[in-house]
Design a protein around this nucleic acid. Structure first.
Length: 954
DNA sequence: ATCCTCCCCTAC
DNA sequence: TAAGGTAGGGGAGGAT
């Protein structure tokens, strides 16, 4: 799959130049008539759809879009009309239509693709006494039904429909459900909402266009239509997009031939008068006889339209809130989880993990099976097949719609009229119009008005990917998965098998099995086979024999080489290098000097078709992370903390899912650039600075709670206004397999902090005793008991022990307390390794950060600056009490110093002091013992010195 | 010289 | 409205 569709498209354009021995099963090149299509189709109302002979129909439209209507169409239309009448009549006679004729007097024209389909809507009209027009007539049609329309269609509707209501199909559905004709007003198409009230404002006071009843009806039924409204507005729920496909199948004829063009039988009038007349007619259905409209109605209309818009944004739980309330980080507590469920990039990014689980034995690589392909013995030539599905996302969703094969189709999240969704994948007919992955739907529709938009179907992608790999594994043992739709096959060892024939067989099987086409490249190494596939696309295959490599590469644009993205391309262009041939002129030294050792060598090799990689080199996972750079908008630190918490849970789950734990953690932040305005992309991150901080902890972890503490600490380093954050990511690296860490959970920092160090082991006092112990009375308590001591009234923060932390050995539900903040030596705390600081900070409920504001990046942290200003004692000099007010409340005895031994990031034992009380506690004990031992050693040294010196003197 | 951190670039 | 992720590789520069 190519996320950069321009790449594929450009290769199509180059096809004739760069194809060698190409076997293409798709002889008709879609790019041939590209220019022609662009010049003709875009200005018409989807003429391409039904046009068997595009040029003729287009020319007639170009000549006069709506007046030059042949007698054939008049005849055909009449015939269809009669046919509908006959059907309606027969169904009523046969008793099929026993329903209330709620649509009597209504005549709909369904324009474009709708859910439900035009045919289904026709069925409803038939059943409930309405009419369905196959072709648009301003005199017969009363309502235009559509889900969305491209801008040019909107213009045409505005010009020629005489102000007919343009409403969404849910109006029909909801009316049927309510068994009465509902007001169409709330169901107006959003694209026309801002326009229609203006018309209504003009007419309503005079003609009672929208009655009070209609308004009341709308208000009362507000909630009833909301649910379906949203579904209609965009797409079926994610995960259920096949419903969409099923529905479309029933109306394929409509899509192809009837629904697309607005055909007007009569000469254009297009005057304000006709507009007025039509709307007055409309009011017959909407006002239902009530003409008693108050003067303020006019002003209410605008509000109504706004209200209607809000209702479209119904959230999934049916709450009367804007969808936007739930589509960004601040308002949706499940934002992170939902986001990943719906992210196509997340799907692509995590596919490999799923593949590894699905094909555990096949995805481990073949490290020992052979060596470098270039080192193979004898004259055996390496043979690599690269196989890649064509426009995967689109192919999969339209695989059951052969009628759409040659129609422009794209996949994206939403076909909302606003058109601010991003095209993810476009098929080749769409690419011919300039539709590319990454452009907005509205731009895509401007380029290609009749573009069909499908939603994602991640389940189907997964399913097809599995079929794809089953076929590959069936034919070849050495398969290296690149992505869900792309793989390398080393077929060198398949003696007697012609690689080209094999590729053909595999492609054929893929098509038979999945209904999707794949392209293949065959060559002597991975680089060349991959390049060959680009040439072969779509639905073809290409073999590059060794002799042709130089010719092939000579004119190949450098951007085609893997590893050369837009940045490297620009850099090379500045050096007048545009093709591989030009790249070859530069020496390896020059390239390495300009681009670095590795990159320089890669450029030198690739420009000569040299690639030393071999199929099957699967590396161990080096990092696991989660990142969200969309919809991130925080209003306060609580939002950001909640978000970080969700992110930690996500990363924790991913680590656990992979059976690894991380020792190094990197927090990435996207910060809005100073002058960056709100991005064009809805909820996008826009122009950002990318910041990151990382820390390494002594013990690897996958514990969400620990991650949260670490992340909190990392987050503190940024010292950033949360309102400026546009994206956050957390990545774990220095991964260690859990297999090798069985039982190591007991060594986690959290556990360690809560446990009694072996060297401090003392007879434990029961929890009840601790709980009952008076505040400040810590006599004879072990280290964890000190940490767990009840001092809540002093510190104001308690640390709730996680019930899941069974390894801690603490009683579940026990609420431990910790030494009060005022008892800490901040000079020491401040200089703790970040991970320990993070842990302590969490234990103190995040208050430590506030108490010791600091930034790792700033050598002169706030707290240390404060300390210096106040002339407090340094760590070496003794304890520092940060809060003078609290200081006065504490007795001298409580100011005794204890040393807590803790593991530093280098696994060394480092002392840091915590103020605890009273003096007789194990820390003091330990300290005194240490002091005595140290003194003893010093004494011995002195004694020895005293003893040795005189000897020397003598 | 080597390692580490903080980036950036790239591919899918 | 919409869902701009994930992971690997590598370069620059600083610390050791």
């Amino acid at each position: 799959m190519s996320l950069d569709s321009s790449r594929s498209a450009s290769s199509t354009g180059q096809k004739s130049k760069r194809s060698f021995n190409s076997i293409s099963s798709n002889p008709s090149s879609s790019s041939n008539n590209k220019k022609h299509k662009k010049n003709t189709n875009q200005k018409t109302l989807g003429a391409v759809w039904g046009a068997k002979s595009p040029s003729s129909s287009r020319s007639s439209f170009r000549k006069s879009p709506f007046s030059d209507f042949g007698s054939y169409m008049v005849h055909k239309n009449r015939k269809l009309h009669n046919q509908f009448d006959a059907e309606a009549s027969s169904s009523s006679h046969s008793g099929l239509s026993c329903e209330k004729p709620i649509f009597r007097g209504i005549s709909i024209f369904v324009d474009g693709f709708t859910i439900p389909s035009s045919q289904e809507l026709r069925g409803y009209m038939l059943k409930y006494g309405g009419r369905h027009e196959n072709y648009f007539s301003r005199y017969r049609v009363t309502h235009i039904i559509c889900s969305n329309l491209p801008d040019c269609k909107i213009k045409n509707i505005r010009s020629f429909s005489g102000g007919l209501p343009v409403v969404k199909p849910t109006w029909i559905l909801d009316s049927v459900a309510a068994n009465k004709l509902l007001s169409w007003f709330p169901y107006q198409l959003d694209q026309l909402v801002d326009n229609q009230p203006r018309l209504l404002d003009f007419f309503a006071p005079k003609n009672s266009l929208v009655s009070k009843d209609a308004l009341l009806q709308y208000e009362n039924e507000d909630t009833s239509f909301k649910g379906s409204e949203q579904k209609d507005e965009s797409f079926p729920e994610v995960g259920q997009p096949l419903l969409h496909s099923q529905q479309i199948s029933g109306e394929s004829d409509d899509i192809m031939c009837q629904n697309t063009d607005i055909l007007i039988e009569e000469p254009t009038v297009g005057s304000e008068k006709s507009c007025k007349v039509k709307i007055v007619e409309m009011s017959n259905f909407d006002a239902e006889g009530d003409s008693n409209v108050k003067d303020e109605l006019q002003t209410n209309l605008h509000e109504l339209s706004v209200s209607s818009y809000c209702s479209d944004n119904q959230d999934s739980k049916g709450l009367p809130s804007r969808l936007s309330y739930r589509s960004h980080s601040t308002k949706d507590p499940d934002f992170v989880e939902n986001y990943f469920k719906n992210s196509r990039l997340h799907f692509i990014g995590t596919w490999r993990n799923r593949y590894r689980k699905h094909f555990p034995n096949l995805s481990k690589g073949f490290k020992n099976m052979d060596s470098n392909p270039n080192d193979r013995t004898g004259s055996q030539k390496t043979s690599i097949i690269h196989i890649d599905m064509d426009c995967f996302f689109v192919s999969v969703v339209i695989r059951n719609h052969p009628e759409l094969k040659d129609k422009p189709v794209a996949v994206c999240h939403s076909d909302n009229p606003k058109g601010t969704a991003e095209i993810s994948s476009a098929n080749y007919p769409a690419r011919d119009y300039g539709v590319r992955a990454g452009i907005f739907v509205r731009d895509a529709k401007a380029l290609c008005p009749h573009l069909v938009i499908f939603p994602y179907n991640f389940e189907a992608y997964e399913e097809v990917a599995d079929q794809f790999y089953n076929i590959l594994h069936k034919h070849c043992k050495k398969v290296q998965a690149v992505s869900c739709d792309e793989a390398f096959l080393d077929v060198t060892d398949l003696e007697g098998e012609d690689p080209e024939l094999l590729a053909l067989t595999i492609r054929k099987e893929i098509f038979e099995s999945t209904g999707c086409t794949a392209s293949a490249g065959i060559a002597g190494n991975m680089l060349l086979s991959r390049l060959a596939t680009r040439t072969a696309k779509p639905d073809g295959q290409c073999y590059i024999p060794p002799k042709k490599v130089d010719d092939y590469l000579c004119q190949l644009p450098i951007k085609e080489l893997p590893g050369i993205g837009h940045v490297l391309e620009e850099k090379l262009k500045k050096k007048n290098v545009q093709t591989c041939g030009q790249l070859r002129i530069l020496s390896k030294d020059t390239l390495q000097k300009d681009f670095g050792m590795k990159t320089g060598e890669m450029l030198w090799n690739y420009s000569r078709g040299i690639d030393n990689r071999h199929v099957g080199m699967i590396q161990e996972t080096k990092s696991i992370g989660a990142e969200v750079n969309w919809g991130v908008r925080f209003k306060d630190s609580k939002d950001s903390q909640n978000f970080l918490s969700s992110l930690c849970k996500e990363v924790s789950l991913r680590l656990q899912g992979c059976g690894v734990q991380g020792r190094s953690f990197t927090l990435k932040i996207k910060k809005r650039r100073k002058y960056a305005e709100e991005p064009v992309k809805y909820m996008g991150c826009g122009h950002c600075e990318n910041l990151s901080h990382s820390i390494t902890v002594p013990v690897a972890t996958d514990d969400a709670e620990v991650l949260q503490r670490i992340t909190k600490q990392l987050f503190g380093f940024f010292n950033i206004d949360v309102k400026e954050i546009r994206g956050i990511g957390l990545q774990a690296s220095k991964l260690e397999s859990v297999d090798f860490k069985q039982g190591v959970g007991k060594n986690s920092l959290k556990t360690w902090l809560r446990s009694t160090p072996a060297n401090l082991e003392k007879p434990r006092i029961s929890n009840s005793v601790i709980k009952d112990k008076p505040v400040g009375d810590c006599q004879g308590v072990s280290a964890d008991e000190i940490l767990g001591q009840s001092c809540e009234d002093m510190v104001g923060a308690s640390y709730s022990v996680d019930n899941n932390s069974s390894s801690s050995g603490l009683c579940p539900n026990k609420v431990s307390a910790i030494p009060p903040l005022c008892h800490l030596d901040f000079g020491v705390v401040e200089n703790l390794p970040p991970e320990l600081f993070s842990e302590l900070n969490e234990i103190y409920g995040g208050k430590l950060v506030d108490f010791v504001p600091r930034s790792k990046g700033n050598s002169e942290s706030t707290s240390s600056a404060l300390l210096h200003e106040e002339g407090k004692m340094s760590e070496a000099e003794g304890p520092v009490f940060y809060d003078p007010a609290t200081l006065n409340k504490i007795s001298k005895e409580e100011k005794a110093v204890a040393f807590l031994i803790i593991i530093s990031s280098e696994n060394l034992w480092k002392p840091y002091s915590i103020q605890v009380s009273p003096i007789f506690n194990p820390f003091i004990f330990y300290f005194l013992i240490s002091f005595i031992i140290l003194n003893s050693i010093l004494c011995i040294v002195y004694m020895l010195y005293d003893f040795v010196c005189p000897l020397y003197v003598a």
